[in-house]
């Protein structure tokens, strides 16, 4: 994987994904090693982010690397009308690897084609967010001990949620994954993504009520439903509360159930869930550091 950009989760084979998860495990055991001390890494965030940017920068710092960059395009020459091509070409001259988030879809692929240094996509619009996908996989593997034979429920906005799309595609590579898709009718998983499940010979089931499925799954992957996704405001008002997870809904769930959420959450998981041992979303965010350490070290070829 040395010097290879990571733009889309489809850029990695199943073996390569598992290799990153193995490395992440080793970094979790020993997160502070100065193996990137000779490297300068650019962190270009053309739109705001809390977790992704800070966990990348934390990972770089914990490995002894130096970070340059910006956290908002208004503090870069983009605000003067500079093209992405020129920004990427310039930053490539100053760094060994570029981590980038950009609001336009396909921006990271384009950057990877013009930059002489590898690019890690930290989110390109609604398209791809492969490092989130890998940290979700790591969180599932860590809590369930395997990525095979799992019952996984995805809840909320399955139409526009890029993390859901990538994770469904990745988990379709594993044995006997059983997908439970819970969403309002307007926000169902697109058929182009369901095709990955079907092509892999796996099964999916669709529901509109979380109660139908909550007691039989190993992973509950919650997502935020945004009001602006609905063409009909009445419909939003009608469904919004059916996708809120509360602590009392967890009483008959499986012992090993874990609740994941890519965060930020707004109101789809009430605070009383946070203290439940099945809540895992903050540890999930922490796992992002180890996975990103694994990716940086692997792409820069230091391990």
């Amino acid at each position: 994987m040395k010097n290879r950009s990571l733009v889309s989760i489809n850029d990695y084979s199943k073996e390569e994904m598992l290799h990153i998860l193995e490395l992440a495990k080793a970094f979790e055991a020993n997160p502070r090693q100065k193996i990137l001390k000779d490297f300068v890494i650019a962190s270009l965030f053309f739109e705001p982010s809390t977790r992704t940017r800070l966990s990348f920068e934390s990972a770089i710092n914990q490995l002894g690397g130096r970070v340059i960059g910006f956290s908002d395009s208004s503090s870069s020459s983009t605000s003067k009308g500079e093209s992405l091509r020129d920004t990427i070409q310039t930053v490539s001259l100053y760094s060994d690897l570029i981590v980038m988030r950009h609001p336009l879809e396909g921006s990271a692929r384009f950057a990877s084609e013009i930059a002489p240094v590898p690019i890690i996509n930290a989110g390109d619009g609604a398209n791809q967010h492969p490092t989130q996908c890998l940290l979700d996989m790591y969180s599932i593997m860590k809590t369930q001990g395997t990525l095979d034979n799992l019952d996984i429920a995805f809840v909320g906005d399955l139409k526009f949620g890029r993390t859901v799309h990538s994770l469904v595609i990745a988990l379709s590579l594993f044995k006997n994954t059983n997908f439970h898709l819970v969403s309002p009718v307007e926000l169902k998983l697109p058929s182009s993504i369901k095709k990955f499940i079907v092509d892999a010979g796996l099964k999916y089931h669709q529901y509109t009520d979380i109660q139908e499925v909550i007691n039989k799954v190993d992973i509950l992957y919650m997502t935020r439903i945004q009001r602006e996704r609905f063409s009909d405001a009445m419909e939003y008002e009608r469904v919004k509360n059916s996708y809120v997870l509360k602590a009392d809904m967890l009483s008959n769930t499986k012992e090993k159930l874990k609740i994941l959420h890519p965060l930020p959450r707004v109101n789809e998981i009430t605070e009383d869930v946070d203290s439940n041992k099945k809540a895992y979303y903050f540890q999930q965010a922490k796992n992002g550091v180890f996975v990103r350490e694994a990716l940086l070290a692997s792409i820069l070829g230091v391990i």
Binding site: L84, E105, G106, R109, F110, D124
Partner: peptide, 26 residues
């Protein structure tokens, strides 16, 4: 991105019968 930068668009044809183009970028 192809609608915002000076660059060449690039699609693979995923359905020749019904004509569906898959953008290499987005």
């Amino acid at each position: 991105i192809t609608n915002h930068e000076k660059m060449t668009t690039y699609f693979s044809v995923i359905d020749k019968e019904d004509l569906k183009l898959h953008c290499h970028y987005c």
